[in-house]
Each structure stands twice: as structure tokens, then as C-alpha cells.
Simulated assay, not measured.
Amino acid sequence: MSGRGLPMKMVEKVWGRTHLPPPFAAPEGQRIGEIWFEPPPELPGILAKYLFTSEKLSVQVHPSDAQAPAGSRGKEECWLVLDAEPGATLAIGFERSVGADEMRAAALDGSIERLLAWHPVQAGDFFYLPAGTVHAIGPGLSLVEIQQNSDVTYRLYDYGRPRDLHLDEGIAVASGAPCDPANMRPVGESGAATLVEGPHFRLDRVAGAPAEAVAARYAGPLLVMPLAGAADIGGERIEAGGCGLAADIAAVDLGACRSALLTQPA
């Protein structure tokens, strides 16, 4: 195996969109919120996906590996904003320290939304979310999410939608602290940037062929997500909006790719 494209799955969400930005298109009448790529057997611990929002997502939190239910992974994740409507925001952590009792009361009466630190965002903003970070995504956003491959999500507040909440589990793993400013930074809409280096995965954005120092970090199988232009992986062409698995960095030709993400477990 030198490379292959990964199967793509569109997922309907109450907060999704009926119209998606190119190169994607939502099936008629469906509100697509996520497009994710089936993790290959070679890299089962990492998941790459796109998110598209027209409404606020729930206020939620994810456990660490140590806190996750038996047989499950924890979930650390990161977001790269691709497009943001005017006034679009994300919530990462709290404005001030919040104790468990206050967090529970605020989740029950809905005031937890006002305790969160909401950040105006634009294309090229990057966020890393350690496990335990309480967060929410606002409407009007398109972003890439790279995460540990886990579906363990604890909802603390959901704006009255008829979905289950998980207050006991969520508060038990949630950090009531503000987010570390080092986990939020603008990286611009283009150009090379190292976005994550461990503990669970590494992530780089490259513009054309990666620098020698970047390529040297990618030993073994990796995922390649072209954002603008196309990548060649072992002779298979992966267009923007797709995701491919490469056996190693030597199998990846990004000469025709103006922007791409490279990722693999750390």
C-alpha cells in the first residue's frame, strides 16, 4: 500500500446546513453538519472531518484517555477555521474559574453559555482543545477538526433541544478554568504552519511540498487532506475536500497542492 483515498461520510445534524461550500454539496433536503473520513486500519486512533454550522452546537466536554469509559478512547481535538461569517464565535473554556456546583446550576438554567469565553473568529484561526475543555461552536462556521477517534461526548447544555444531557459524567471530567491562551492562535488562511505536536497526534499545514524538517517528523502512515489543489499519493489523485492515507511521506506529492494538512498519531 502506497496510498488510497478514504471513504467519506456525510452526517446530518440539527445544527448543520442544507447548502455546503464548494467542493461539497448536501443531498437535497438534508442538513449536513459533519463530513468525516473512515479511519483506516493503519491509523485507527485519529479522525479527520469537516464541520459546517448554521446554529449553535451544544455546550459539551470530552474525557481524557484515563477518564473515558472502559474500552473507549478519550478525545482531544483541534479546529482550523476555514470560513467564518461576520460575527461568528467559538467558546473555549470559561471566562473565570467555575466550581462543579456552579457549573451544574448554570447548565441546568442555561446560564452556562454566559460563563464561557466566546471568541470572535475568522478564517485561519486555530484552536487546540485538551480533554476536559468545556466548549461550544457557534453558527456560520466551516472548519476542519482533527481529533482522537472517539465519540465520547458529554453534553452539558443543548438550548432546549430534545437530546440527552450528561451532567454527572461531564462535570466529573470538566475543567472549570479559562483556556490556556497558548491553545488559541491565528495562523492565517495560507502558508506552512506546524499546528500540533503531540501528545496524541501531530498536525502540519503545508503549502506545496513540505519543508525537509516537517517531512522528517512524518515516519510511517499519515493522512493527507488537500484544502486547495490536489495531492498525489502513490499515483492516486486526492482532490481538495478529500482525505488520503499514505504509507509514508515519500509516497506523497504535493507539488500541485497549494494547501494541505498532514496528520498522524504522535
Rank of each mutant, 00 (worst) to 15 (best):
E28Y: 04
G93W: 02
L129T: 01
S97D: 14
K75V: 02
A48M: 04
P27H: 13
Y128M: 09
A70E: 15
L82H: 07
F126Y: 11
V59N: 14
W36P: 00
D109R: 02
G93R: 04
P86W: 04
Q60A: 01
G71D: 08
H62W: 02
G45D: 14
A25G: 01
H119G: 00
A26W: 06
A91K: 10
P130H: 15
S54P: 07
Y50T: 03
S64M: 07
L108Y: 02
V59C: 12
A105P: 10
R104Y: 01
A25L: 12
A84E: 00
G33C: 04
Q122A: 15
V59W: 13
E42V: 10
A66F: 10
S58H: 06
E38K: 13
G71C: 15
E38D: 14
A123F: 04
P44L: 14
R31K: 15
R73E: 12
I32C: 05
A105V: 05
D125L: 03
V98D: 00
A131V: 09
A84K: 04
F37A: 03
E76G: 05
W79P: 00
S111D: 08
V59L: 15
V81C: 01
A117L: 05
L43F: 08
V59S: 14
E38Y: 04
E38P: 01
Q60L: 09
I92T: 11
A117H: 13
R31H: 08
D65L: 00
D125G: 12
E28Q: 14
L43S: 05
E113W: 11
D109Q: 05
L115F: 10
A26Q: 02
L108T: 08
W79M: 11
W118K: 05
K56M: 14
F52Y: 07
Q122Y: 06
G33T: 07
Y50H: 12
G99T: 02
A26R: 04
P39T: 13
R31S: 13
G29Y: 05
P41H: 11
I46A: 11
A131D: 14
A91Q: 05
P44E: 14
Y128D: 03
Q60P: 09
L80N: 03
A88Q: 10
P63S: 13
T53I: 07
W118D: 00
G33V: 00
E76N: 02
Y50K: 09
F94E: 01
A100L: 07
A88E: 08
G110M: 14
E113H: 14
V81S: 00
A26M: 05
A70Q: 14
D109K: 04
K75N: 14
D109H: 11
P69Y: 14
A117C: 12
C78P: 00
G124K: 11
E102M: 13
G33N: 01
R114P: 01
F126G: 07
R114W: 13
F126M: 09
K56D: 15
G29P: 08
P120N: 06
W118S: 06
G93A: 05
W79G: 08
E42F: 11
A48G: 12
I35V: 12
S64Q: 09
